[in-house]
Design a protein around this nucleic acid. Structure first.
Lengths: 348, 348
DNA sequence: TTGTAAGCGTTATCAT
DNA sequence: ATGATAACGCTTACAA
């Protein structure tokens, strides 16, 4: 570990003062072209880069963004969203010389503590708020903490402080329901995600509205919490019902895959006896039996755009909400016309 | 945003000098009990906490650990390991007032660049090396960069510089093979992970050794890369074989689940016609059809222990390798005795 | 156009 | 036992 060169070394090498080097570096007016060239040559020669820690102290900036992920352990491993979203964030942050500081915590209380730590230790200049909840308390929290923030999709009480990066999940769910209706289904059930979250209830609303728009009675709805176990339990409830649905739209792929397994266990054959649709297009979706019809969003791009927006906001650029292209329906083998007999066959 | 108090404010408030406050804070000898009490009272009263950025500059430390995850996008979303491992890291780092800076990159070249950035920007004091490869070039890289490091499992040329946190995957794979042998299987195939990685080849070796120890011919081995698509393709190859295996041991759950779907497509019924075993116990493993027999390690604990070891190393404490309890076999519905007819039934 | 010097908030080294 | 003062490496008034 050799001592790394400082701005003073560069200044000495170029025969100028520290201040001049700083001005040249940051492109301020008032440095002659010729000296500027000499300074840059010295920088290259010494391999000097401004020290981030010194700059951080001086500017009181972290040059980093924060992300606190609050997920129960079972949900963590299966959600295909986060890793790809983070890769998207990173694709922008890396270029910008910024870092991502990540926290993974089990629940909402620990999450709040996470934001507090981020602010107290000046680890991040801004944070990304994912999994927006109804009346989300984090909006006021981050405002108090003086952290810049952006939300993924709009909270129900939009904050003027935190712009939203929106990827509307309703068109995808609507397309799924319409696809099933087009196949001839009329008894279409829904396994919703946790209604605590905006994306849980917006998917549910899209389902109900699309059914209603087609003149169909919105079928039974079972609420899960996005985990595979909840998807299995919800499917149990729906299938035990007298008027068994011929199709089920799930709020995510994990629940859909677990639901398919549950249907299998009950002796149903998919998609002959039951059609199912997921949401996310998880990497496994194409590789289960039958391959899962689902909705594919673009988490990578979502991450990239989120990073850009938040960085701009941190820099003081005025920003406003961004709308991304909605996810598209990917039709695979888990959907087919409903059974032809007027009444669904009895369960064995 | 009110100006936060500095150590000078505390000193003034307590009627001492900055130096004395610092000594009291860091528990150095040479501060009278009575003044110490006065100083702590002042700290509490003003709500002062030492500023991390100033401390970082002074000590030339980041008070953070780094993790660079290099994964192809398809593999990212499905690997149940990372999120839980990170949660484990976090459980220790949070307590210790440290942060985790994460990078997610697509390939090995970007990964090296990631470590360079971490070091150049002084973002992390140490890094975790996951997915250890044979002749892993990262060991010398991080040494050059002056980053402390620990590896997950031992590289084949163990570095004295970077201790390893080991969770041997061989006993789990051996238990899987023995379980199948106990059920009466003799033609047991293996779908290996990428042989580039130590955990790819160690699982394969454990499979082969256990077969040999039981006096069985190690069956065909197909190599995948841990993705679902590769698992499906590998399974195709194994099933197309004349002497079709009656059981397959996969190097991870993603490939196993995809393999099960492939077998289904070919008209096989699981576990009657084919038994399969995975590795990881992904959250979905218990919720596919049939529920997957697999090996469960403990990524959370692995993360926690890794963080402890790496922090100790950063602090200059002498450390050595740590061995964790190996994963255990979880028997579910995807394994059963082989078909009774002497020859496996013909494929339709 | 350039140099000087004063911060940013710590910790460490000297005195006292 | 405590106080003054100088780093750490940068940015930015202000002077020249």
């Amino acid at each position: 570990m050799v001592r790394r060169p400082t701005i003073a070394d560069v200044a000495r090498h170029a025969g100028v003062s520290k201040g001049t080097v700083s001005f040249a570096l940051n492109g301020r007016p008032g440095v002659a072209e010729e000296t500027k060239a000499r300074i840059f040559a010295a920088m290259r020669e010494l391999g000097w880069q401004p020290d981030r820690q010194a700059r951080s102290l001086r500017a009181s900036r972290a040059y980093a963004l924060g992300l606190v992920v609050a997920r129960p352990p079972e949900l963590l491993g299966i959600d295909p969203f986060f890793p790809t979203f983070i890769a998207g964030l990173e694709s922008v942050l890396g270029q910008a010389g910024q870092a991502l500081v990540l926290q993974v915590v089990p629940d909402a209380a620990a999450e709040a503590e996470g934001y507090r730590r981020l602010a107290r230790d000046r680890r991040a200049d801004g944070v990304v708020l994912t999994d927006v909840r109804h009346d989300d308390p984090r909006l006021t929290l981050v405002a108090e903490l003086g952290l810049h923030a952006v939300t993924l999709n709009r909270p129900d009480t939009p904050s003027t402080e935190a712009p939203a990066v929106c990827l509307d999940d309703r068109p995808g769910v609507a397309a799924a329901v319409e696809h099933l209706i087009g196949l001839g289904h009329t008894r279409i059930a829904h396994v919703a995600g946790d209604e605590l979250y905006v994306h849980g209830s917006s998917r549910r609303a899209a389902y109900a509205e699309t059914m209603a728009a087609a003149g169909l009675e919105p079928g039974p709805v079972a609420v899960g919490d996005f985990t595979a176990a909840a998807g299995a339990a919800a499917t149990e409830r729906l299938l035990a019902d007298g008027q068994r649905p011929t199709a089920i739209v799930y709020a995510n792929d994990s629940m859909a895959i677990a639901g398919a397994a549950t249907a299998h266990e009950r002796g149903l054959e998919l998609p002959r006896d039951l059609s199912i649709v997921g949401y996310d297009d998880a990497p496994l979706a194409a590789h289960v039996h039958p391959p899962l019809t689902t909705v594919r969003a673009d988490p990578f791009r979502w991450g990239a755009v989120t990073a850009e927006l938040l960085l701009a906001k941190v820099e003081g650029v005025p920003v406003s909400d961004v709308e991304l292209a909605p996810g598209e329906l990917i039709v695979r083998g888990s959907t087919a016309p409903p059974p032809t007999d007027p009444e669904p066959r009895e369960l064995p």
